[in-house]
Design a protein around this nucleic acid. Structure first.
Lengths: 109, 109
DNA sequence: TTGACATGCAACCAATTAGTTGCATATAAT
DNA sequence: ATTATATGCAACTAATTGGTTGCATGTCAA
């Protein structure tokens, strides 16, 4: 089973895909052709990246006539934050303190 | 050039590595051997994952005698949130509104 | 309807990744 | 000293990934 979380993390792992999200954040509703501009790769490569972004539900695409418009969906990113990053955040200070102590303890030995 | 951000996203992309972080969050300062327990892979595979986590600075390891103890460092996760996820969060509602409008517009055409 | 434009699909290729096994080294315990 | 434990290093393999090219399909415009 491939969870949503897995899809989102995989999708975010690639720089080109993060750039595509940045483009859509800058200007929503871009077509495939427009998204290709400024990328040093083929249209088909971009298509593949978009497929993964759609699988992760980070991008929603709608066909309008002969073009496909892409919209950013920030919800999965929020979910990741809420159910994964948040729990690492919560005890950040405590964890850092522990780390510091552990290093110190190791030092004077 | 490989940025810190790149390293962190790559490190977080793998389920086994996220599980290792979860283990350390549960109990900090685990040795390699302890981290291996509950993983259905060889010790060397775990070592490789830990190398990536250390490269991303998500884990700090210190040698104590013949064992290597691993500590969680939540700072890079916070950084990712601050400088990347945060900006997608900020305009979440607005972006969702735009998306909804775009879909609606497309509908009654 | 013919041509141009925007996208989709599939086969293929190279690089990277996740894992393995085998062996070496360093520390602890008897 | 010898043995057991904990980890490190390197070579190899299989699967996945990011990219390519070629061709097909669908839509708009003259």
């Amino acid at each position: 089973m491939v969870t949503d979380e897995e899809n989102v993390f995989k999708a975010l792992a690639d720089k080109s895909r993060r750039q595509l999200l940045d483009q859509l954040r800058e200007k929503n509703g871009l077509s495939l052709g427009e998204l290709c501009e400024g990328h040093d790769m083929s249209r088909q490569a971009v298509t593949k990246h978009l497929v993964l972004l759609e699988a992760a539900n980070l991008v929603v695409a709608v066909k309008r006539g002969r073009e496909k418009l892409h919209y950013l969906n920030p919800v999965p990113i929020n979910d990741i934050y809420m159910r994964w990053i948040g729990k690492f955040e919560q005890d950040r200070v405590q964890t850092l303190h522990n780390l510091k102590e552990a290093l110190k303890e190791n030092d004077h030995e």
